[in-house]
Design a protein around this nucleic acid. Structure first.
Lengths: 181, 181
DNA sequence: ACTTCCAAACCGTCCAGACGGTACAGTAAC
DNA sequence: GTTACTGTACCGTCTGGACGGTTTGGAAGT
């Protein structure tokens, strides 16, 4: 595997960006190629079909998830803090791709759903280790899903601020303590 | 307003169903018309364009929201219980339409986002009255969003059971109590 | 009571453009 | 000579939308 094809990465990135901020409908092959600064022929060289492109993005999410969960486990403020804080990010490779794959999962792309479920499971596991209660862990991940969902709607209504996240992290702390006590 | 056009309701329903369980991509005018048992011409009589159809659905959500929030406030087990429990329903007029409008909101339909935000605000308000703490109220609605998000992915991974909801409602109770001191 | 008429509600067909995909000749770098 | 592309031309299908035609319920006139 020499230099690693540059265009491949740009295509995946462009596809993810189009999906997250313009929806599935707008993410056509032509649009992806244009955004990636690549010809349509070049796109189809790397991903011979649209399905292949979707699978490629799902596979990419799996790689990113592995790395992200490792970072999450090592986060100084703990997994809960890390998870909730990153759930409102719109930049960052992981968040963009995660949101994009969520879009795909709503269509006819089973691989996307599977990749999402795996990420989900990894999160629940990591959070459970911190809070010590599986029910609380699942609630935290649900909170994260809710945050992602609102983030995905874009700059519509009132944005979720850092202070809001602080309050949520606090709440989870109270919850974990109450459960243990 | 005599007989009230039957087809109009069927079209909205069909559109919502297609959006929720097959995605934005699959919800074409032809598909909607076929599912509603109406000709394409008939569809375009009621909704002169696809944008108009989307607006129609958003408007319909507003009506349903009004009614649903009223029911929620009067729910015997309280708003929190009602909200969380209905967040996993896939049948029921409200849930189908809510999920459908969520899909639209991800595309280029600003009205959809606005209708969603309004529903959101109404929920936070109603929940806040029960739990007495705005932060907890927002967390509950985020939980609901998370549940909706998972529900929307369909029968993929492990479904959320009634027991899970019981546990969540419990958790919220603990939280509210802890907050009150 | 009967005809007239009209508008609402709906059908079926056609079209221009967009979309996914194919094919292939060429090119620049390693 | 292989890898990694570009560019252009093309095809069949799908999509949103336009358009003209048809059925139907009932108000109005006599």
């Amino acid at each position: 595997m020499p230099p690693a094809p540059v265009a491949r990465g740009k295509i995946l990135r462009a596809f993810a960006e189009l999906l997250t901020d313009s929806g599935e409908r707008a993410a056509t092959l032509d649009a992806v190629a244009a955004r990636a600064g690549v010809s349509k022929g070049g796109l189809l060289y790397h991903f011979p079909s649209k399905d292949a492109l979707a699978e490629g993005l799902a596979a990419h999410l799996r790689e990113l998830t592995e790395a992200d969960v490792a970072v999450m486990r090592a986060a100084p403020a703990g997994p809960v803090d890390y998870l909730l804080r990153t759930s409102t990010a719109t930049d960052g490779d992981f968040e963009v791709v995660y949101l994009a794959v969520s879009r795909l999962a709503q269509g006819a792309y089973p691989h996307a759903r599977a990749a999402l479920d795996d990420a989900h499971d990894a999160w629940v596991e990591a959070v459970a280790e911190e809070v010590g209660d599986p029910t609380v862990a699942r609630a935290v991940v649900l909170l994260s899903d809710g945050l992602y969902a609102r983030t995905a709607l874009g700059a519509g209504g009132p944005r979720v601020t850092d202070d809001d996240i602080d309050a949520l992290v606090d709440l989870v702390g109270v919850l974990a303590a109450a459960r243990r006590g």
